[in-house]
Simulated assay, not measured.
Amino acid sequence: MVSQLFVKTEEQRKWLHALQTKKAAFLSRSQEIDEEAKFPHENIRELVTLGYSKVTLPKIYGGEGLGVYDMVLFQETLASYDSATALSIGWHVGGLGEIYENQLWTDQQLASFANDVQKGALVNRSVSEAQTGSPTRGGRPGTTAVRQNGSWVINGRKNFTTMSPALTYFLTSAWIEEKQTIGFFLIHKDTPGLSIDETWDVVAMRGTGSHDLVLNQVVIPEEALVETIADRGKALNGWVLHIPACYLGIAQAARDYAVQFALEHKPNSIKGSISELPNVQTLLGEIDAALLAARHLLYHVAEVYDDKDRRKYIENELAVAKYQVTHAALTVVDKAMRVAGAKSLQRNNPLQRYYRDVRAGLHNPPMDNITIQKLAESAIAEFK
């Protein structure tokens, strides 16, 4: 559970209480979700019913109007219950926050889409492709958009489309030859020619339903082109902090398990529980030190981003928060497994699931090498 130190408003307390009512149910389903690589439809439906899917939609559009700090707080909490659920809904609430903060779409497009979100619509960007790798590295998508008879015809395949079994809309990138740019098209799930190829078969985040999106002669209206790469520019996007928040939540769950295990495990070779052993206390202390440092960094960066006067001073902090928090999560889960010993490797033990799931954070954007390179370039430029 997140320390009360990071809870600042009554609105946050209200939402944390609402999410905590789902804790027992989400925890009870998490093992099955992982073992069967089963998308958490029930969890997502409950969050939509709760109104969580519109927390980052501005109030003028009928949402809750909450910020990046709020999202980080809630996403960490959700991830401590079920990682697949948190990462999945995180892409929606983070994407929604970005869309409405930047106001890149027309007023009519924003209003129409907000109306759908109020009715429970879910969205995620669909940008990754097997041949281009991570879109953050600048590759041109193989997916194409061609204008024909007043419509767009889209063809291509996207991978890593998280939450694909539950999405209402796919915000899909495609190369527009006539414009010599990358466009983003809002495509409804029921559009003819759109299908999901269930390719997601991995050892981490097994329940996220991150399958391939297949687009075969998909015809959509001209207004489905809602933004381009040029429109997006190089504006900061603090909404990506839902990613480290998720892995921090998983690490917190691992920490809680380790503490409980240490208190309850009482081998007959010692008096009392292993919680009294110096080596176990060292591990638990190191775990909490890592969590405290990661949490303070993440929440501070989120707080600065929400302050428009201070946001302009952010340079590499968003990427560093993801980098440091993800690596801290790896460390925390590893040490938690050392507390539990070989029992942590049993298939019915949640620690082995946490261990696999936090590894996925290494492959979410931004990638480690890009972050480190930018830090080095910034340091060099400062002295030049």
Rank of each mutant, 00 (worst) to 15 (best):
R157I: 05
Y169I: 10
H188F: 12
T144R: 09
L194D: 12
G138I: 05
K179T: 04
G207F: 08
G150L: 07
I220E: 06
E222Y: 11
A204M: 10
G156Q: 00
V226N: 04
S210Y: 09
L248A: 01
Q217E: 15
V226W: 04
V219R: 10
T208S: 07
T143R: 00
A224S: 15
T132N: 01
N159L: 12
P221H: 08
Q180D: 14
T191A: 08
V219Y: 05
A245T: 08
V202P: 03
V153R: 14
T191L: 10
V214P: 06
T136H: 12
G209Q: 02
L194W: 12
F170L: 01
T162I: 11
I176Y: 10
T132D: 06
M163R: 07
T181K: 12
A230T: 12
G150H: 11
I187R: 00
R137L: 15
Q131C: 13
C246F: 07
N237Y: 04
Y247A: 06
A230I: 01
R140V: 04
D231A: 10
G133F: 03
T199N: 06
E222G: 02
G133T: 06
D197N: 15
R140P: 00
T144W: 01
H188P: 03
V226H: 09
R137D: 08
K158G: 03
E177M: 03
A224R: 05
M205E: 08
D197Q: 09
I176R: 07
H242M: 14
E198I: 12
R157W: 06
Q217K: 13
R232D: 09
G156W: 00
T162M: 10
A235R: 14
I187P: 00
I243G: 07
T181E: 15
R206K: 13
K158F: 01
S151E: 15
L215T: 00
N155T: 10
S173Y: 06
T191H: 08
D231R: 00
V203E: 15
V240I: 14
C246Q: 13
G138Y: 05
S195Y: 09
V202N: 14
E198A: 15
E178T: 05
V218K: 12
T132L: 10
P244T: 09
N149P: 02
L213S: 04
V153G: 05
N159H: 10
T168P: 02
G233V: 10
S134T: 13
W239Y: 14
G193Q: 13
V218F: 06
A166E: 11
T181I: 05
A230C: 03
N159I: 05
T199E: 06
T181P: 14
R147G: 00
I243L: 12
F170E: 03
T161W: 03
R232E: 11
A224N: 13
H188R: 09
K179N: 09
